[in-house]
């Protein structure tokens, strides 16, 4: 009998506590109820949910909230693309402009190639062996301008690789490469690159200038075999006047460029390339290479 009483008391007390706490929670959920706009959930559903931060907000939830409050335009999500922008615009009852897909481009061609004796025959010249933190920002602070002779080129310590949420950027032969199919254009890599090498371009471009060297021609030639020396041959041959040469570096204005590819044929350093070749995404037109490491 005694034991039965004990058990009953325990059950009653625990049950009572549970009931009391349940009531407290129920009351609290009424008292502290926060109204949320049902559109917020719908907006969240449109977004990819990768939280890449490419829109400039803290994750997809932050961007959805900003759109709801009218602080941000739709179509800032590079990953969701046009589809996502239109869906969000439909929820918000506004019109969205078409969003063109862009991908990241690393403006450096200085992949290092060595002969069988270990002598460098191609690419950006290395002036020192760097053995510190495997981080481009850290490396770029060492010895004035980092271990590369070129002050503008890719250091290849993979800071962008770590920043990419999609596994779309890899370091190959000392230079970062973007896989065009995986890249969603969030530009998280561009934000962390200490040399501001990474820019957005439309995919499937026939011509991209894969160099960022703004040094004088002679200096560029000394520090890299594939650096833009600002000779202007591409500018002269371009039928649409789409190319300008500023500070020893050619640039293409894509509003004028019609993808003819003439400039690529005259570039003495062969650094004007097909964006596909540059991004290694299509094995059929991948440039032949001696290195077995090239994989995406």
């Amino acid at each position: 009998m005694e034991i039965l009483m004990q058990v009953l008391i325990a059950v009653a007390v625990l049950g009572g506590l549970g009931l009391a706490f349940g009531l407290v929670l129920a009351a609290a959920s009424k008292i502290f109820y926060v109204e949320t706009d049902p559109r917020l959930d719908q907006l969240n559903e449109c977004l990819p949910g990768a939280n890449c931060g490419g829109c400039g907000y803290a994750g997809c939830g932050g961007y959805a909230e900003a759109v709801l409050n009218g602080e941000a335009p739709v179509g800032k999500c590079a990953s969701g693309g046009n589809e996502c922008a239109q869906a969000m615009a439909a929820i918000m009852g506004i019109k969205a402009e078409a969003v063109t897909r862009k991908v990241a481009l690393v403006r450096c061609s200085g992949e290092k190639t060595y002969d069988k004796d270990g002598n460098q025959i191609k690419g950006a010249k290395v002036k020192a062996n760097y053995e510190g933190f495997r981080d481009c920002l850290a490396a770029s602070k060492v010895g004035g301008s980092g271990p590369l002779s070129c002050k503008f080129g890719c250091l290849g310590y993979g800071t962008c690789t770590k920043a990419c949420k999609y596994g779309a950027i890899k370091v190959v032969n000392g230079v970062a490469k973007v896989d065009e199919d995986l890249c969603v254009g969030c530009m998280a890599c561009a934000a962390v690159c200490p040399r501001q090498l990474i820019v957005p371009v439309e995919p499937n471009r026939n011509v991209v200038i894969a160099c960022n060297s703004m040094a004088k021609g002679a200096v560029t030639t000394r520090s890299c075999t594939v650096g833009c020396i600002g000779c202007g041959l591409c500018k002269k041959i371009c039928p649409n006047d789409a190319i300008t040469v500023e500070k020893g570096l050619a640039r293409i204005d894509y509003t004028k460029c019609d993808n003819c590819g003439l400039c690529a044929t005259v570039c003495p350093k062969q650094l004007i390339k097909d964006s596909k070749v540059e991004t290694l995404s299509d094995p059929a037109i991948k440039q032949p290479t001696n290195s077995p490491e090239v994989k995406v």
């Binding site: 625990l14 706490f21 929670l25 959920s29 502290f32 109820y33 926060v34």
Partner: peptide, 16 residues
């Protein structure tokens, strides 16, 4: 039981 309830209430309180 107490801790679980408490965390829930604190969460709701802070949210509001």
């Amino acid at each position: 039981l107490v801790i679980a309830t408490l965390v829930q209430v604190v969460e709701m309180f802070l949210k509001k």
